[in-house]
């Protein structure tokens, strides 16, 4: 009888617990800029994904008689000097820019998280050695090295992914290592060790999921960096090569003809800038939501 009453009381009094993720989601929803950013990104991603089916014109469809015309009803964002539809070209360029952003970031994520987790879990001399290596690599001027790589090994997309990913993993490794190091002291890890779980299982099942917050935040902020890097290289002519296209490449074409046809510069520029905006706002929002202690900047 008494136990029944207690359980009833408990049912009423104890508020339903919210997990860290639910909490974060609530906080993120309140951040209007982040939600706008997220919405915009989802929109851009869907458009880029569906481009081959929804693009108004063919990617290489030229209309030399038309030449470069300003935005009109037929060509919403105008055409370039070959009479190619700008909207179509920006949509195809976006596919490459986003692809580079996501794949290179995934490379960075994979290397960084694995490396950081191993260093943080191993501790001691292994950790000291691994982190010294990161420090040394971090001091290398990577932009110059990426240019060097592109020159030496030719300009292919796969190498670009690898090169950019290889640069961006360093910070990720540091963040993960710090997280793992503090999580490693917790009782539940000790419990897992005494239950006889292998280090790999402990890292994968217990440590990484708990270190995920900062990793997600940093990932969101890495994507715009990577996209900028790709655009930067393509602008210099060292990144994506025609006939492939990316926003950086479109901007560099736009610069050549901006005096007569400014819309060839403005629209790809707007596409890149607004996407970077959205990613940064989302990243800031996620940081506030997932990692309230982290400083803003």
């Amino acid at each position: 009888m008494t136990s029944k009453i207690t359980s009833q009381v408990l049912d009423q009094d104890i508020p339903k617990g919210t997990s860290l993720w639910e909490d974060a989601l609530v906080r993120l929803r309140k951040n209007r800029l982040s939600m706008i950013g997220l919405g915009f990104l989802v929109f851009i991603m869907i458009v880029c994904l569906l481009t081959p089916w929804i693009a108004p014109y063919g990617y290489e469809e030229q209309n030399l008689r038309l030449g470069a015309i300003p935005p009109s009803m037929e060509h919403w964002l105008g055409t370039d000097t070959f009479g190619r539809d700008m909207l179509t070209r920006i949509m195809y360029g976006g596919r490459v820019s986003l692809l580079v952003g996501f794949i290179a970031t995934s490379v960075a994520l994979l290397i960084g998280v694995t490396y950081g987790a191993i260093a943080g879990y191993a501790g001691g001399k292994t950790d000291a050695f691994m982190m010294r290596l990161v420090d040394i690599l971090y001091a290398l001027p990577f932009m110059i090295f990426i240019i060097l790589l592109m020159v030496v090994f030719g300009r292919n997309l796969l190498l670009l992914f690898l090169a950019i990913g290889a640069v961006e993993w360093l910070v990720m490794a540091r963040i993960v290592r710090g997280q793992i190091q503090s999580l490693r002291q917790q009782e539940y890890v000790e419990a897992a060790i005494s239950l006889g779980l292998s280090p790999a299982a402990i890292i994968m099942k217990h440590l990484i999921p708990n270190a995920l917050g900062p990793v997600i935040v940093y990932t969101t902020l890495t994507i715009p960096n990577v996209m900028l890097l790709e655009a930067f290289l393509s602008f210099l002519g060292l990144g994506i090569q025609p006939p492939e296209s990316s926003w950086g490449l479109l901007i560099s074409y736009g610069v050549e003809t901006m005096e007569e046809y400014p819309w060839l510069l403005i629209f790809p520029g707007l596409a890149l800038t607004t996407t970077l905006f959205a990613l940064n706002f989302l990243g800031d929002g996620l940081r506030d939501a997932l990692d309230p202690k982290a400083s803003r900047d």
């Binding site: 715009p224 901006m258 510069l265 905006f277």
Partner: peptide, 17 residues
């Protein structure tokens, strides 16, 4: 924020323009 999202290879040409 605009400054961070506006790469130099875009800002430069726009300023020139």
């Amino acid at each position: 924020m605009v400054g961070i999202c506006m790469p130099s290879f875009l800002l430069g040409p726009v300023l020139v323009l």
